[in-house]
Write a protein that binds this DNA or RNA. Structure first.
Length: 135
DNA sequence: GCCAACGTTGGC
DNA sequence: GCCAACGTTGGC
């Protein structure tokens, strides 16, 4: 069981879009490091859904990998299907994450972390999930 | 909207 | 295979 964080600009695809669609194909990733992470994903892995670029910048919910990685039309690249799990009652904002010493070392908080798909430790995942679920 | 940080491209 | 130029990301 692995944990991940995926970024999305809500203008492009938001947690509400995922909620409406129930599931979506996470494709179009054009970064080798991110692609390599995709290829190690397994069905059942849980994913933190992060909104970038717009306010509030925050982890806004949870998704789950529901289909093993597969090649896109261009076989150099890979995609997975993720399904909606929950939308957080209270989004965990980037600033909250940054000031929480227990979340130190999350790739998201590192300077210039542009990776759109990042692995998250179980500990970090649980903390974010818990604080997101508190109303 | 700015710009620093980063990844990618392409000429050599 | 180096590295400068370029394009993109994403926080501010």
């Amino acid at each position: 069981m692995q944990y991940w964080l995926i970024k999305s600009e809500p203008d492009c695809y938001s947690i509400d879009d995922l909620k409406r669609d129930k599931k979506t194909s996470w494709s179009g990733v054009r970064n080798y490091q991110a692609r390599n992470f995709i290829r190690t994903m397994k069905v059942g892995d849980l994913v933190l859904f992060y909104h970038s670029s717009t306010e509030p910048k925050a982890v806004v919910g949870l998704a789950q990998v529901v289909k093993a990685p597969y090649a896109e039309k261009d076989p150099d690249w890979s995609a997975v299907d993720v399904a909606f799990v929950e939308k957080f009652k209270s989004p965990v904002t980037l600033s909250q994450i940054k000031i929480n010493p227990k979340l130190e070392g999350m790739p998201l908080t590192e300077q210039g972390s542009r990776l759109s798909i990042q692995p998250v430790s179980k500990e970090h995942f649980e903390i974010v999930k818990k604080s997101g679920s508190i109303s």
